[in-house]
Lab assay of single mutants.
Amino acid sequence: MFYPNSPQTSPQLTQIPYGQQYAMMQRQIQQPYHPFATTEPQARLYPYHYQGPIQQEQGGFITQQSTAASPQYVQMRVTPVDQSIMSGYPNQTANGSSSSSFNYNIHPQQQQQQQQQQQQLRHHAMPVGSVPLQDDRYRKQLIVNYLAPDVTSTDLHELFSRFGELDGARIIYDKQTNMSKGYGFVYFCHAEDAKEAVERMSGYEFHGKWLKVGYSTNPLNIVPSNSSPYVHAGSRGAAG
């Protein structure tokens, strides 16, 4: 039997160049792979992502010199942007860049009308829970959420009447099932009393439920100042 490094198959040491006398086997001759043993700084910083320098080929596509990437890492192929796409944008300079302001050559009167329309939209648009300043009635009506099913309009009136005089209180019921929808409205005579009720009743436990109280901004629920107070009856038909 002959071994790869046996004296019968191995040459004389004098015939082997210096430095390879003890590297006779194939696994010894093959050098191990060192990912950080390279002179390129990109490979030292990113050993798993770097795959060699990027070269520009004919046709405008950018390719990489090395083989496919590892399945664990996804390499994105980048193509140059066609400058003709950006030619339609206004205020574009000769080098292809555009300024931040756009001039669509709008007539001054049209621009003024658009600004007025935007101001009107901001004036009428009102986020949930906010209180408008032009109508004091919005500051007097509250919406009470997360009410228990057994709470009546009379219970709601008695709960909030300790903060001040009320114009009314009612629970909203479903017309088909005649069941409470879980929320109601309270109408105060003074805005200061309503503000105190919002601050003190939010998070209050009532009939096993934690109440959420806020201003009601729905104009359909506003009680006119010259109208008669609501009837605080315990029956659902009268309260709904």
Score class of each variant (00 low, 15 high):
residue 66 S to P: 10
residue 218 N to E: 06
residue 139 R to E: 15
residue 108 P to G: 02
residue 29 I to F: 02
residue 239 A to T: 08
residue 156 L to S: 12
residue 147 L to H: 08
residue 91 N to T: 07
residue 233 A to F: 01
residue 46 Y to M: 15
residue 179 M to W: 11
residue 163 F to K: 10
residue 138 Y to E: 15
residue 21 Q to V: 11
residue 125 A to V: 03
residue 189 C to T: 04
residue 69 A to R: 04
residue 3 Y to Q: 02
residue 11 P to S: 04
residue 112 Q to G: 08
residue 24 M to L: 07
residue 175 K to F: 12
residue 134 Q to C: 07
residue 228 S to Q: 06
residue 100 S to L: 04
residue 150 D to M: 03
residue 84 S to Q: 15
residue 137 R to T: 02
residue 199 E to D: 03
residue 44 R to Q: 03
residue 154 T to D: 04
residue 202 S to I: 01
residue 235 S to Y: 11
residue 172 I to M: 00
residue 171 I to G: 13
residue 219 P to E: 13
residue 177 T to F: 00
residue 42 Q to E: 08
residue 95 N to L: 11
residue 143 I to Q: 08
residue 226 N to A: 10
residue 23 A to K: 03
residue 24 M to N: 12
residue 182 G to E: 00
residue 152 T to N: 11
residue 60 G to Q: 08
residue 82 D to K: 13
residue 113 Q to K: 04
residue 100 S to V: 10
residue 235 S to T: 04
residue 105 N to E: 00
residue 131 V to G: 04
residue 131 V to Y: 00
residue 110 Q to C: 00
residue 30 Q to K: 12
residue 49 H to Y: 11
residue 214 G to R: 12
residue 197 A to S: 07
residue 204 Y to E: 07
residue 136 D to T: 13
residue 225 S to V: 04
residue 11 P to C: 06
residue 121 L to V: 05
residue 191 A to H: 12
residue 108 P to K: 07
residue 49 H to L: 06
residue 22 Y to M: 02
residue 80 P to N: 08
residue 155 D to S: 00
residue 144 V to F: 14
residue 119 Q to I: 15
residue 63 T to A: 02
residue 165 E to N: 13
residue 109 Q to W: 14
residue 40 E to W: 14
residue 69 A to W: 15
residue 120 Q to E: 10
residue 137 R to M: 01
residue 74 V to C: 15
residue 122 R to Y: 14
residue 229 P to C: 09
residue 8 Q to G: 07
residue 186 V to K: 12
residue 74 V to D: 14
residue 20 Q to M: 13
residue 85 I to H: 01
residue 200 R to W: 00
residue 98 S to W: 13
residue 216 S to L: 01
residue 143 I to G: 05
residue 181 K to D: 01
residue 65 Q to I: 13
residue 2 F to V: 01
residue 133 L to D: 02
residue 120 Q to L: 08
residue 153 S to H: 02
residue 130 S to M: 15
residue 215 Y to H: 06
residue 150 D to C: 01
residue 62 I to Q: 01
residue 58 Q to M: 11
residue 219 P to W: 02
residue 17 P to E: 01
residue 233 A to P: 13
residue 142 L to W: 14
residue 188 F to N: 02
residue 55 Q to L: 09
residue 237 G to N: 13
residue 7 P to A: 11
residue 239 A to K: 12
residue 233 A to N: 09
residue 201 M to Q: 00
residue 147 L to T: 05
residue 70 S to M: 01
residue 101 S to H: 05
residue 76 M to D: 05
residue 205 E to A: 10
residue 10 S to W: 15
residue 106 I to H: 04
residue 11 P to D: 06
residue 180 S to H: 11
residue 97 S to H: 02
residue 80 P to V: 15
residue 167 D to Y: 07
residue 67 T to R: 03
residue 156 L to H: 15
residue 215 Y to G: 07
residue 68 A to R: 02
residue 34 H to N: 10
residue 196 E to C: 03
residue 197 A to C: 07
residue 183 Y to I: 15
residue 225 S to I: 10
residue 20 Q to D: 00
residue 33 Y to A: 03
residue 110 Q to G: 06
residue 57 E to S: 05
residue 145 N to V: 01
residue 29 I to H: 09
residue 146 Y to M: 06
residue 208 G to N: 14
residue 47 P to F: 13
residue 47 P to M: 14
residue 24 M to G: 09
residue 50 Y to S: 03
residue 154 T to Q: 00
residue 130 S to L: 02
residue 128 V to W: 02
residue 186 V to S: 07
residue 111 Q to V: 02
residue 216 S to D: 07
residue 158 E to V: 07
residue 160 F to P: 11
residue 227 S to Y: 05
residue 208 G to D: 03
residue 220 L to V: 08
residue 203 G to A: 06
residue 208 G to P: 12
residue 27 R to P: 09
residue 237 G to Y: 14
residue 76 M to I: 14
residue 154 T to E: 01
residue 91 N to E: 11
residue 68 A to S: 03
residue 57 E to W: 06
residue 84 S to C: 08
residue 203 G to R: 05
residue 231 V to K: 11
residue 205 E to P: 12
residue 162 R to Y: 10
residue 72 Q to I: 11
residue 185 F to W: 10
residue 67 T to S: 05
residue 195 K to N: 14
